[in-house]
Design a protein around this nucleic acid. Structure first.
Lengths: 310, 310
DNA sequence: ATGAAAGCGCTAACAC
DNA sequence: GTGTTAGCGCTTTCAT
């Protein structure tokens, strides 16, 4: 049996008879055969790792626990295919980092995390079919994202059902496009209820959540609910409110987004919505590894988790 | 100029004249040359990624935020060397996973996270010089770890200085060797102070922290301080105590270990000690990438962070 | 100190 | 459907 036939069977490409398949499979399992990823990558110029490129204003973005979750899920998925992962910061206003990734022959594919419109516009053609986004996508970049629009609607409706009528929202960073979907949903929901919109920009950090809550209570002292896009900000807001002597949820309800571990540990427990990041990252990784050309747009459902804070 | 000379210059091995060095350097920067990692790996059989192998009882271990931190730091360090990272679960009682990693020619090196003695004993000889541990090490495995012994001593001394005399400790999982250093330090510290030791096993989770705190207050109702190895457990304990109507820090002080983000957000804020995981992981990764043969043992200092809980 | 040549383990074209 | 051949881009003997 020739090497070529074995290769065809193992890679699943090209013709192969039943008999050949079986013999190869038998030999492979018996010899504990593991394909040599580097040799394959060299021959197919497919690259040996996939790059996780995270958009953000500072390299500090890479320390966000959210990035850790994405990376771990990606690494687990890729490891099964003998592919590694590397981590890169994508500065907001210097998208030529993408060109460098595209030219690097070691990189088989790219997963964009929190890309901006300019970043998507700067995606080199050579990356087509081997790039995916966790966040917004484009014609060339399939998108895998959490359905934060529907989630926002559910949160606001829950707050309204609980009798809240002056609901403020702490948004994500304004440069982050997926923030917009949530803000739009928020606007629609409060409009329908005939209650006033109250928006304050956030950045997903706890510190900003604290400041934002203070700002909200100063500008609109009669606010009776705060919804923060991101649990860290929600927890920051919760802390600031309690320090100011505001009772949560008595005076003001607080809700978050992401359902991080600490949401359950806070007192009162934080009402929030789930973010199936691991699942999303695994799908995005699979799409990149399979070189799917589809320009799809997939939303993953987020479910409301009711605790004491709202 | 021949490819061989260029290779010698770029890899830094073998002889090369000043002139040659300069010409190669000039050409490389001008052409934005990036070495092809796969080709190099194929020629040198050095592997194209480093494996992060995490010891634990269930695959769920890989979802721990601590693993995310290690992975992100490793990936960042490795990316600079054109090396990827993959993530693997190391079942506690099936260390032959290590043999599989060693045989896999795609894997250049291994970083062991939370290894056990049996796992270290099962390290194949072929991994020598390209393996490091975050946790305990061995003759063949250099260890990079946080100095939790000293940290524990400092925490206990701080509690004693605050007038606490019946200090309980929630440990890490008993199978985790680095737990022992902390427990030993705890014993020594309470012995010296002439106060009674009170130990309850933990597993780093919040749920176990809650249960452990309840157990502590049932067995030793006069306990006036709880130190948990791991902030998640400490926060779980804090929550359980407060639910039981115990005032923190009035009745019972609570201290943790790791200084995770939530430690600052909890009310009261959690007194804890830092864990420079990113730094440690970067060093371990560098050791593996450089193929250092030293059987070193490096402890990284942990500093006390005082908040309200103790 | 440098160059020529062989080869790392695989896949892709091309005959058969 | 299968085998033969020629690389993928580097490193490494071995001559010179």
């Amino acid at each position: 049996m020739s090497a070529a036939t074995a290769s065809r069977v193992l890679s699943g490409r090209g013709p192969a008879s039943k008999a050949a398949r079986q013999r190869v499979a038998a030999a492979a399992t018996e010899l504990h055969y593991v394909p040599h990823a580097a040799a394959r990558a060299l021959a197919t110029r497919s690259g040996t790792r996939i790059a996780v490129a995270v958009g953000g204003q500072t390299p500090h973005t890479l320390n966000d626990p959210y990035v850790g979750r994405v990376l771990a899920a990606t690494a687990k998925t890729a490891a099964a295919r003998e592919v590694g992962v590397s981590l890169h910061w994508l500065p907001l206003h210097a998208p030529d980092e993408l060109a460098r990734l595209a030219e690097n022959r070691g990189i088989g594919g790219v997963i964009l995390v929190n890309p901006t419109k300019p970043a998507l516009a700067a995606v080199p053609k050579s990356l087509r079919g081997r790039i995916a986004a966790i966040g917004i996508g484009s014609r060339d970049v399939p998108s895998f994202d959490v359905d934060n629009g529907t989630a926002t609607t559910r949160v606001v409706q829950h707050l309204l059902a609980g009798g809240r009528r002056r609901i403020a929202m702490i948004t994500g960073p304004p440069w982050l496009p997926c923030t917009h979907r949530a803000v739009t949903a928020y606007h629609r929901a409060v409009d329908q209820a005939g209650t006033p919109p109250r928006l304050v920009p956030g950045d997903f950090t706890a510190a900003r959540g604290e400041a934002a809550a203070t700002e909200i209570m100063t500008r609109w002292p009669d606010t009776d609910a705060v919804f923060a896009l991101g649990d860290l900000s929600a927890l920051g807001a919760l802390g600031a409110l309690r320090s100011a002597g505001v009772d949560v949820p008595g005076d003001v309800a607080v809700a978050g987004f992401d359902d991080i571990a600490f949401a359950a540990l806070s007192r009162p427990g934080l009402t929030t919505t789930t973010n199936p990041v691991e699942d999303i990252a695994a799908r995005a990784a699979t799409a990149v590894l399979d070189r799917r050309r589809s320009s799809s747009l997939t939303f993953y459902p987020s479910t409301l988790v009711l605790r004491e804070s709202a």
